[in-house]
């Protein structure tokens, strides 16, 4: 090896080492500053930060009881019989739902019930955080998610929903007597759980309602489009049939 070759070897070594060091330094910088491409882009501090779920994620079931017609299609579609419901006549002598139970510890998240629902009131949320086994054990009951008659009658307005969200986000020991009273109004004594709002299972969580409404509108649009196309096809077939006959 010539002298210049020797120098070149050293220079190449230094240069390639510097190249590697700069790459790892860049990674370190990106990772610690949460820049794009850092670990935070790939890894989520799940309990500390919300985890991401993909589109079309099939999470916990959610029933919009206002639109439910008690047709029991979902109950029939369910392959493991985790849905059960009851109806009652209200003060205007109209039939409406009084109880809607979903046993989440049995649910297999297949989504068949949401497909057959004619009013699109039964949907799947993106929620996944409930551990049905532990929660059901902890509350000594079989059903995790239950609408009771007095709760189906009760409706909260937007202000009440906001208040509920505000309260449930706080430490329970710091609540004022008014807040406690408000909570006891809407608390399910049997399960010790707020069925509205807190876990996104109840009806009046604004996010859940918005999501359900959007999904409903989308499906309605799709159905109308399909109907229109079918009508077109029918008309064309009729016309061709008439033409053939002529």
């Amino acid at each position: 090896m010539s002298f210049l070759g020797w120098v070149r070897e050293i220079v190449d070594g230094v240069e390639s080492t510097a190249m590697g060091l700069s790459t790892t330094a860049r990674f370190l910088w990106e990772n610690t500053t949460d820049a794009e491409g850092g670990a935070t882009a790939l890894t989520v501090d799940y309990p500390a930060a919300p985890a991401r779920v993909p589109d079309g994620f099939r999470g916990h079931l959610f029933n919009n009881v206002d639109s439910c017609t008690l047709c029991k299609q979902c109950q029939r579609a369910c392959p493991i019989d985790c849905i059960s419901m009851e109806g009652e006549l209200n003060e205007n002598a109209k039939f409406r739902i009084s109880r809607f139970d979903i046993d989440l510890s049995k649910c297999i998240y297949c989504g068949l019930c949401t497909q057959v629902c004619p009013t699109d009131c039964l949907t799947m949320t993106k929620g996944y955080e409930i551990d049905p086994v532990n929660v059901v054990n902890a509350h000594g009951g079989r059903y995790l998610f239950r609408m009771r008659p007095e709760q189906t009658k009760r409706r909260m307005d937007e202000l009440e929903v906001e208040r509920l969200n505000r309260i449930t986000a706080r430490d329970p020991r710091t609540l004022s007597p008014e807040d406690r009273e408000f909570l006891s109004d809407i608390e399910d004594r049997e399960s010790g759980r707020f069925l509205f709002g807190r876990y996104g299972l109840g009806y009046y969580t604004p996010e859940n309602k918005a999501l359900a409404d959007a999904a409903r509108a989308e499906r309605k649009k799709a159905r109308e489009l399909a109907a229109a196309q079918a009508a077109q096809v029918d008309a064309a077939a009729k016309a061709s049939a008439e033409g053939g006959a002529a």
Binding site: M1, S2, L4, G5, V7, R8, E9, V11, D12
Partner: peptide, 10 residues
């Protein structure tokens, strides 16, 4: 000089 004249060694 080395970078100009000598080829990369490895």
């Amino acid at each position: 000089m080395a970078k100009r004249d000598a080829p990369a060694q490895t």
